[in-house]
Design a protein around this nucleic acid. Structure first.
Lengths: 413, 413
DNA sequence: CGAGGTGTTGACATCGTTGACACGGGCTTG
DNA sequence: CAAGCCCGTGTCAACGATGTCAACACCTCG
């Protein structure tokens, strides 16, 4: 076959469809005389079933008002011709695609990958497709990427805010709702799904305090990052709660990479009065800290890590983590979005997703020396008291999304 | 505001557009008398610029045949009205969406996440969006998911084959090309991007042989998985090459989880004549094996792991890996797809993406005892000879995609 | 000066689907 | 028995863009 590709592409085929021949819809004659497979449309089905296109549409859309016999005839024709509705045409007609847009920082990041996975699953269950786009490390790209999804008429958006301002979405929200995840948007009121970073920082620190530690280090990335700020605030709050003075020399922030975190941790531990425990406030930090401790045989230092990471449970001692559960966040965000699509005028909601502390060993180490904790009992945990600590309890996945605390925040008055 | 949502949704607005008023396009009067933001269309721009819709279309699409002055007037109007073309309408008209579909096993898997990330980046550069769907562990879902993307008129597909047969795509390929990744499809000839599993298995094994090992274990998951089969074949080929008899007791397959791998490795090492080195043929296996070795102080056993994993380079000794580079695979697949879109009739191509061995320590350990290798030199590597070994050389990322070996496989004759 | 070419612009139909509305027949109801 | 209703079905136009083709203006050259 050395025909030109014309014989295959042949899009505008003005062949007169003639009598209701079953095959005319499947194979179509080109002007050049070739038979080419053609898309089967509603009208083709209509012709074969001897009804109007509208009726076929009704059958396809499960409209009640169709006689069983007609329905059967149409379904037969649909099956015979292998008709598949063109969702692009439908989208144009109804003014919105059955697609949601997801904007994340980076898909290569396991956190966002798992988030995306959860969103995709939820969407798929509702027959919606998902378009993902990653912004990378250039916050200004956010709005461009959001635009590129809006022009594709997505029904709604889930966005990890990176931009300095989200005012550009103000006019759009009424038509295309946006749910923000992980952080709150700037300059705009909108639905959001957050991790309870403050409570998490508090819980991690409290956990170490409960195991007798009094000198607890904090390892974190840039303070520009609101997430880090909140976790640090939680750390400080837990210390204050127990009347432990804030020792600035125990706080090491600004570690953007695992390597930097490793160095920061080295410095922390080699100081005059080193910490007996460290709260590593994100995965990159942990990936610097943990190998350092293992490599240098300092497995006596207690560690609680924010973000679970591969191998965390295989090490000796296994690493106690605050588990983020990106799936839960994704499910909650998708859920919020679908609810929003059903009621565009309800007030904006912020969903706070609980995190849970997974004790595995490293966080339950007791400080060395005579200063051993005053606590008795193997674990030393007090009964849960604060709401923050309630959230720490492991929750079955199914219920967790619904169990998330909701705090309505009024839309502009 | 307690208006019913009608005042906001107001989609079919039959307000007569009247004279060419700039604002009529942006704010529109509802029958109820509310001003609502409305979508700006080509016709709105046309009216404001006093040209036809077609001319606006030409300007938007960078058509040359427009007078500079007209173009300027139109661009002015576009800017004034904030016009954004409706890509769904365009897609309907041209018969295909500027979207590609990506079907993976699971987005939560870091391999697929990074693959997705790369595909998305490549697509984004070309102005295409990406719809992702994951199949999960039910191969039968593959075709359903592919269909759901096809009805959305995606321009092309990148698919991780899971289904037993891909014959269902035979009729579709001419209209919507498919590039398979990671594995070859069944029952169909198509473009594909593969990792050179055989060469990788060979290279890993040869690397250990070159460091003096003669008893090398193989740790892998189910043999149902063609990927595992190929890596095992590479392992056997490398052994045969050196005249080392195949000792079945050194091959442990069927380990589906890290835990199972750990147990399998334990059995391997506790046997009467344990291996001095182990080739762990995937990440899950390594996540079982490596902590086992570290935990039991058996850091004398040499290890080469297929798939890099977090912390692999932080351990002591750091783990020598065969690096997969999902990004490279994703880029190659996207690239193949875009080329295919430009020439639907070229013969199918299989692109084999090179992998590289990253020596970090664990793979360069020499066997204990008097049987030390006959090789001299610190590394003991021979000059690269086979094509497989050529691929092992680290390649700069930019060139690697183009440097991938291509083997054309004729389309049906 | 007219024929022919080149290049800009617009009218119109069309992509495949669905919402609004109309029509006719059978049913209920006063 | 007439008025009114519901029900199944069809007609038509529209969603917003673009391909085709023709109209027209302007230029060049014989």
């Amino acid at each position: 076959m050395t025909e030109t590709s014309d014989s295959q592409r042949c899009v505008p085929c003005s062949f007169d469809r003639g009598p209701p021949d079953r095959w005319a819809a499947v194979l179509r004659l080109c002007p050049k005389g070739f038979l080419v497979p053609a898309r089967v449309t509603l009208r083709d089905v209509a012709r074969v079933a001897a009804v109007s296109a509208k009726t076929v549409s009704r059958v396809v859309n499960q409209d009640e008002h169709v006689t069983p016999s007609t329905r059967a005839r149409v379904q037969r024709a649909i099956a015979d011709l292998g008709f598949q509705p063109n969702l692009v045409a439908r989208s144009l007609r109804v003014g919105r695609a059955d697609v949601i847009g997801l904007v994340v920082e980076s898909l290569a990041d396991p956190f966002f990958a798992r988030l995306t996975s959860a969103v995709e699953q939820e969407a798929h269950e509702r027959g919606l497709a998902v378009m993902v786009s990653s912004v990378g490390h250039v916050p200004e790209r956010e709005s461009v990427i959001v635009q590129s999804l809006l022009v594709r008429q997505v029904a709604g958006l889930i966005v990890t805010p990176m931009s300095q301002s989200h005012a550009y979405l103000a006019g759009t929200q009424q038509r295309t709702p946006v749910v923000f995840v992980d952080r709150l948007p700037e300059d705009i009121t909108s639905d959001a799904v957050l991790v309870d970073d403050l409570a998490a920082g508090e819980a991690a620190t409290r956990h170490l305090l409960d195991h007798g530690h009094r000198r607890i280090g904090f390892l974190g990335s840039e303070l520009r990052n609101p997430t880090t700020r909140l976790r640090l605030a939680g750390y400080r709050r837990a210390l204050a709660e127990r009347g432990i003075p804030d020792d600035g020399s125990l706080v090491a922030v600004g570690a953007g990479s695992a390597q930097q975190a490793r160095e920061a941790a080295e410095k922390l531990l080699s100081g005059p009065r080193p910490p007996t425990a460290i709260f590593s406030s994100n995965m990159r930090c942990s990936l610097g800290l943990v190998p350092l401790l293992h490599g240098s045989g300092r497995t006596d230092v207690a560690v609680v890590s924010f973000d679970d990471f591969p191998m965390a449970d295989s090490l000796e001692p296994a690493v106690t983590v605050i588990d983020h559960d990106p799936e839960l966040i994704g499910r909650a965000a998708a859920d919020r979005l679908f609810r929003r699509l059903e009621d565009l005028d309800a007030p904006a909601e912020t969903v706070v997703v609980p995190v849970r502390l997974v004790p595995r060993g490293s966080g339950e180490l007791r400080p060395p020396g005579p200063s051993g904790g005053r606590d008795s009992g193997a674990d030393g945990r007090r009964p849960p008291a604060s709401p923050a600590e309630r959230d720490m309890r492991p929750a079955p996945r199914q219920e967790a999304a619904d169990g998330a605390r909701r705090s309505g925040r009024g839309r502009r008055p």
